[in-house]
Every structure is written in C-alpha cells, then in structure tokens.
C-alpha cells in the first residue's frame, strides 16, 4: 500500500515552485500592473482619457507652472485594464511582471514628462 504512494510520488516529482532560486514566469495575459511606454505617451487632453477612467486614481496629471507630468502610482493600480482600452495611442499596457514589491513608496511611482512639453 505504501509503495503505491511512493511510486506515485516518484512518478509525479516535485511540483513545488523553486521561486527565489529559479526564476518563475507568469503566463501571458496575467495581469500584474499597468506600465507606460514613455516614447508613446504625449499626455494629451485635459484630463487625459486614461486619468478619467482610472478608478483608484493611480493615474494622475500633475501641473506645476506649465510643467505637465503623468504620474502612475503602481501601489494604487489594480490592473483593471481600463486605461489600456482608453489610451488612443496604445501607450499603456498591462504587464505580466509579478516582482512588484518595493521597500519604499517612491519606488512604486513612475512619472512621465513628455518631451514636447518641456520645449513649449
């Protein structure tokens, strides 16, 4: 009887993830967090359509004296994907990156300042 289970165990092998030692990969389509392709984004519209649809206000526009920045707070992002559908230029996407933890709040915020804006 016990040998049956031993044979079963040997045949199946170890299913436990080896995560910190061996890298793990999430399947495509798994939703981790929203990421911004900086070269695509121009922060157009007041407010931009992505900021309008963002429910937890992870996306916001900050304006200080003509300087216009798009702020993406990964700590607030719930990876719903509404901003991906709303962006007319396809600058936003949902990545399947899972190693998202950070030791400080600032590391979870990415800011984008479009190039054309600085000249204007």
């Amino acid at each position: 009887m016990q040998l049956t289970w031993l044979w079963r165990g040997l045949r199946t092998g170890v299913l436990t993830t080896r995560y910190p030692r061996r890298p793990e990969r999430m399947p495509d389509g798994w939703r981790g967090t929203a990421v911004l392709q900086r070269d695509q984004c121009v922060v157009e519209g007041a407010p931009p359509s992505c900021v309008t649809v963002c429910l937890p206000r992870a996306l916001s526009v900050e304006e200080t004296g003509g300087d216009r920045r798009l702020r993406l707070d990964h700590a607030a992002c719930i990876a719903c994907g509404l901003c991906v559908a709303a962006c007319p230029r396809g600058a936003l996407s949902i990545s399947n990156e899972f190693e998202l933890a950070a030791s400080s709040r600032a590391r979870l915020i990415s800011e984008h300042r479009p190039k054309g804006d600085r000249a204007a």
């Binding site: 993830t17 995560y19 910190p20 793990e24 999430m26 798994w30 981790g32 967090t33 990964h74 700590a75 607030a76 992002c77 719930i78 990876a79 899972f98 190693e99 998202l100 933890a101 950070a102 030791s103 400080s104 709040r105 979870l108």
Partner: peptide, 17 residues
Amino acid sequence: VDVYIPGCPPSPLTLLH
C-alpha cells in the same frame, strides 16, 4: 512601513517576493 506589496490582490508569488 518596510515593504509595500501592491496588487489587488497581490498574487502569491508577488507576496513571496
């Protein structure tokens, strides 16, 4: 706070990380 684990909910691997 020492570590922030974002996600709604964070996946077990994100938690592990």
